[in-house]
């Protein structure tokens, strides 16, 4: 089986029906991808295949031959979402976090609260109550906007760095 894993070409000699989840954890020694339920319900095992989130517990490795797979390790700890989840309490126990972040990556640049809820509906979290997760994602969007150097936007936000982005998507009331 050949595929691109986090930007690197890989050849894996495994049973073609082996779950992508097990190949990642056992054959590739990448244990960032978690198993929660093993039945497609929780999203803890989410990875990106050709950019699209899938549950790696439901994917036989034969079906990713030639594909591009991104796991949480592929974000190299440097993705803005990873920092935002730390900063805004988007991660507590952390079991859902790798899958949650990858599903959030697939939301694109400026998701609305509704888009976040729909896009993350397949990712369960037992700790955060979700608000902190939505806030974390929203913070990245707002940071991106600040970094584009819209001065007015920046001035409007200074002093209310954490509050402003929250109200934009109406996450907290």
């Amino acid at each position: 089986m050949r595929f691109t894993l986090n930007g690197t070409f890989r050849r894996i000699d495994a049973h073609p029906l082996k779950r992508l989840l097990d190949v990642l954890r056992e054959d590739c020694a990448l244990t960032g991808t978690k198993e929660g339920c093993g039945e497609g319900e929780c999203g803890a095992c989410t990875v990106l295949v050709d950019g699209a989130p899938v549950n790696s517990c439901l994917v036989p490795i034969a079906q990713i031959n030639g594909a591009r797979v991104t796991t949480i390790e592929g974000l190299r700890g440097r993705h803005p979402l990873q920092h935002a989840f730390v900063e805004h309490g988007g991660a507590q126990c952390g079991i859902c976090t790798p899958g949650m972040i990858l599903a959030a990556v697939a939301l694109g640049k400026k998701p609305t609260l509704d888009q976040m809820k729909v896009g993350l509906a397949g990712n369960l979290c037992r700790c955060t109550g979700y608000s902190a997760i939505y806030r974390s994602i929203d913070a990245v969007t707002s940071t991106a906007r600040r970094n584009r150097g819209d001065r007015k936007d920046r001035e409007a936000r200074s002093g209310s760095r954490t509050k402003k982005p929250r109200t934009r998507a109406g996450v907290t009331r």
Binding site: A52, P53, V54, A106, V118, G122
Partner: peptide, 9 residues
Amino acid sequence: VGGVQIQNR
């Protein structure tokens, strides 16, 4: 149907 992960597959 399901969530995005299920819809994608």
